[in-house]
């Protein structure tokens, strides 16, 4: 297990070395979103009767930052190692495929959850945040981060240059995150877009996460938990098998 712990430690150290870029900057960005959107929309939008729009925004923004950073961690680490060639040190090592997968997954989850937690804590300086049930919050935070960590690994392994990771991030991850109810409830959408939102797994991650704060959600949190868990298991299976096959790593 020393090999696994070492890889995990190295991955944590990698993002900690540039903590302003990897943790502090996304927290600041989320706070700016919060400041601008709540200022502009607070008096115009009511989602839940007992919850102000600013309060409603915080879990969405925290989850969005969490997801984007979990993706960024694994994808950037792998593509950097591939482009600079230092992935060879890892490929020569006697790590099992599962240890390889798990170390990258956990490091990304830790960065994602750190950023998400940072957004919530920084927001709490300006606003009292209610917490309905922390277990739902943690469950969706870890599962959501796990899903994006897997997607980041897939993107990093598949991509041959930074540009391709950016395509994955900007044309797939970003739209799916923004269209999942970060800034609104899907009930405010026309019927067609509501149906589209229901096939977006990001919607269930954010909706379930928000349930942990307010005890209210667009769909039952149990349904969200099942959907998110199944997506996580499916992507873990796919990612592990990609690593095992050596696709674009051992060629």
């Amino acid at each position: 297990m020393t090999g696994f712990y070492t890889l995990l430690y190295k991955e944590l150290l990698r993002f900690w070395r540039v903590v302003f870029q990897t943790v502090a900057a996304p927290i600041l960005t989320a706070l700016l979103y919060l400041l601008i959107f709540s200022h502009v929309l607070m008096d115009r939008v009511t989602v839940y009767s007992e919850v102000s729009y600013t309060e409603f925004l915080i879990p969405g923004l925290a989850m969005m930052s969490l997801l984007q950073n979990a993706f960024a961690n694994s994808s950037s680490s792998i593509i950097q190692s591939k482009v600079t060639g230092n992935i060879v040190f890892l490929l020569l090592a006697p790590l099992s495929n599962f240890q390889f997968f798990l170390a990258y997954l956990l490091a990304s989850v830790i960065r994602g959850v750190s950023v998400g937690l940072g957004v919530v804590l920084a927001s709490s300086v300006f606003l009292v945040i209610s917490i309905f049930n922390p277990l739902w919050i943690l469950g969706f935070a870890f599962l959501g981060a796990g899903i994006l960590a897997c997607l980041g690994l897939i993107a990093g392994i598949w991509a041959e240059k930074f540009d391709q990771v950016a395509v994955f991030q900007n044309f797939i991850i970003m739209p799916m995150t923004f269209l999942s109810g970060v800034f609104y409830s899907i009930h405010s959408l026309p019927q067609f877009w509501q149906e589209i939102s229901r096939i977006n797994p990001f919607f269930y991650m954010i909706d379930g996460f928000r349930y942990g704060f307010f005890g209210e959600s667009d769909v039952s949190p149990m349904i969200s938990l099942v959907v998110v868990s199944l997506v996580f298991l499916f992507l873990s299976f796919v990612t592990f098998n990609i690593i095992k096959s050596g696709y674009k790593l051992r060629n």
Partner: peptide, 17 residues
């Protein structure tokens, strides 16, 4: 790996093995 010193690189590589 541009993130690390020589000592860290050797320590990490030892850990992998």
């Amino acid at each position: 790996d541009p993130f690390f010193t020589v000592r860290e690189m050797l320590s990490i590589q030892s850990g992998y093995f």
